[in-house]
Design a protein around this nucleic acid. Structure first.
Length: 307
DNA sequence: AAGGTTAGCAACCGCGGAACG
DNA sequence: TCGTTCCGCGGTTGCTAACCT
């Protein structure tokens, strides 16, 4: 017996989302938070499958998304994280606040790949490309084998993806196995050539195998960068709904973790500018007691006072 | 101006794995 | 332990605007 489809597609809408559908979804999540995605379309009055709703929300409607092209810094981050993690876009995205895995994947495929190739770097292995062979050689000889990873020691966690390798044939592609995995404590983060001060007490930076340092225990890798990376709520509303007719004061009822709420709180209250030295999650915790609920109504954001 | 091509991106597809009964 | 459900992820598709001829 095969796997059941994620949703009954009969009568369900597919393709681009309309503004009205967006509003319905946003209103529902603002009011109820993120719950079981399968139930969302029914409860929100949408003729979509739950998967489609989740995708639309996570990739487009989330208020913490940063729209627009990746900055030079973000691009550098993506390149280095890709060298460490391979095509694990969600992991890469988790280190870039306001960016989605889909967005990074698209940017990689359309921009970064070409850039690296132009620079003579293989986007798969992040090593210099072999010099191009003359046309006659290309026809007669198989493609060169990819270089082996420098570190030959066995990896504790082998990535399962190994598509593209066909043993005994000339069809040779690269796999995730060939990208050495780096433990969080091995990572090093720099921006424009300057090593950022570590926000994590545990990062010893003894290994310099990577030009970036990502502290696994502290995802707000650098407050300065976070400041640039997170979008403003005003910007979100104006870009998402193409309207300036809203009045943002406070936002609440989000089903997010404390750090996200704190970041959002800082954006809204301008608290961030005066409190850049915050280091622990405890001090990040936002005060939600006075928050209003934001609801989409027609083309405008409406606010409901909770207290 | 019209038709063809390319680039960029939103959305979909299908699989794997976690959670649960 | 097994079957089912659901979520999340990575790969792929398809639409559309921009560009080219």
């Amino acid at each position: 017996m095969g796997r059941q489809p994620c949703c009954d597609k009969v009568g369900l809408k597919q393709g681009p989302w309309t503004a009205d559908e967006d509003k319905k979804l946003i209103n529902f999540i603002l009011t109820n938070g993120q719950c079981c995605w399968r139930a969302v379309p029914k409860l929100a009055g949408l003729l979509r499958c739950g998967k489609s709703c989740r995708l639309r929300w996570t990739n487009y409607l989330r208020p913490d998304l940063k729209r627009g092209l990746l900055s030079e810094y973000e691009e550098k981050m993506v390149i280095d994280l890709h060298a460490q993690l391979g095509n694990r876009w969600s992991k890469i995205a988790s280190n870039l606040p306001g960016r989605t895995d889909n967005e990074i994947k698209n940017h990689w495929n359309t921009h970064i790949k070409k850039k690296l190739k132009k620079m003579g770097i293989d986007p798969l292995t992040h090593k210099p490309l072999p010099p191009p062979l003359p046309p006659t050689d290309r026809q007669s000889s198989p493609p060169p084998l990819p270089p082996k990873p420098v570190d030959e020691t066995p990896q504790p966690e082998k990535v399962k993806e190994s598509k593209g390798i066909v043993e005994g044939t000339d069809v040779v592609d690269f796999s995730m196995d060939e990208v050495p995995l780096i433990e969080p404590h091995d990572m090093l983060l720099i921006t424009d050539g300057n090593i950022l001060p570590s926000l994590s007490s545990s990062s010893s930076s003894s290994s310099t195998s990577s030009p970036y340092e990502i502290s696994a225990s502290n995802q707000n890798f650098a407050h300065e960068e976070l400041d640039q990376s997170l979008p403003s709520i005003d910007h979100w509303c104006s870009t998402t709904f193409n309207t300036t007719d809203y009045n943002i004061c406070d936002v609440g009822f989000w089903d997010y973790d404390d750090e996200f709420m704190a970041n959002l709180n800082m954006l809204i209250n301008d608290q961030y500018e005066t409190d850049k030295t915050i280091e622990s999650d405890a001090t990040f915790a936002p005060d939600l007691t006075h928050y209003s609920r934001m609801v989409m109504n027609d083309d405008n954001w409406m606010f409901e006072q909770l207290l």
